[in-house]
Simulated scan of single mutants.
Amino acid sequence: MTGLPEWYMRFGNWILKLLILNILWFMFTLLGLVIFGLFPATVALFAVIRKLVMQKDDDVPIFQLFWSTYKSDFVKSNCLGIVVLIIGTILFADIYILKQLDPGIMNQFLLIIVFLLIVVYMALFTYIFPVFVHYDTNILGYFKYTIILIIGRPFHTIFMMVSIVALMYVLRWMPGLIPVCGFSIFAFLVMKISSMSLPRMNNNEV
């Protein structure tokens, strides 16, 4: 019982930070007119949570780090986001086209292949943000590191996807949490699981 107050305070501190980060994510997404603000705001959200999770620094200047990441990675994150969206659009368009064709063995085989690629794409879409804020490389490099994590850490990948589905189920029944801290909880969950696979940070690393 002696450790309960400390645990309770730490839990409350995390809830407050996630609430603030969720508000910042909404604000800076709107600042970029949604289309151009979504990916920079998401990257900034993951950058702050990465430092909180991996460096365990309770004194992280949340707004300053969020704003500096948003500005510095605005163009780069949007470029990455465009590539990710194009890949997703092509895959889902393939599904639509294949469903319009006459059913056959080859068609069913192609559908299975595309569905498997979509599963990989969903894992890639989830991992790409932790990879982006952890490594300083080019667009191709982010995809390379992400694929390596997906293939090299299959149990972590499965655990992450199952955890995301569970979180979506909770948010479905408690939709009021989405505008309060839904997106920041998602980022925290993904970053926490990703940190098991990513190299550790030095104490003086930003």
Rank of each mutant, 00 (worst) to 15 (best):
V114R: 02
I97W: 11
I147M: 14
M122R: 08
I87V: 14
V119Q: 10
C79S: 15
I90C: 10
K99T: 04
N138A: 11
L85F: 12
I147R: 03
R153I: 00
T146P: 06
A123W: 02
L117C: 15
I87Q: 08
I150T: 05
D136C: 05
V133S: 02
L98E: 06
H156K: 06
M122F: 10
R153T: 07
N138H: 15
G141V: 00
L117S: 13
V75I: 13
P130N: 07
I164S: 03
I164P: 00
I97M: 06
F115M: 07
I148N: 08
V83R: 05
I148Y: 08
M161W: 01
N78H: 13
I158C: 09
L110I: 06
L124G: 09
I147G: 03
I128V: 15
I90E: 06
V75Q: 09
P154Y: 10
Y135L: 03
V165A: 15
T126C: 08
F92M: 11
D136S: 15
L149P: 01
K76S: 09
Y121F: 14
I150A: 07
V84Y: 02
H134Y: 14
L91P: 04
I150Q: 03
P103M: 04
F155Q: 15
V119F: 09
R153S: 13
S77W: 00
V165C: 10
K144Q: 03
I164F: 01
V83W: 07
L85I: 14
H134Q: 12
I151E: 08
L140R: 10
V133E: 02
L80I: 08
L117E: 13
V162L: 14
Y96A: 10
K144Y: 05
Q108R: 12
Y96G: 03
F109T: 14
V119H: 04
I112S: 13
F143M: 13
I164H: 01
G104V: 05
I82Y: 03
I139G: 00
K99L: 10
V120P: 01
V120D: 02
T146F: 02
I148R: 10
Y145G: 01
N78L: 02
I148V: 15
L140P: 04
I139R: 05
M122W: 07
L140Q: 11
H134G: 03
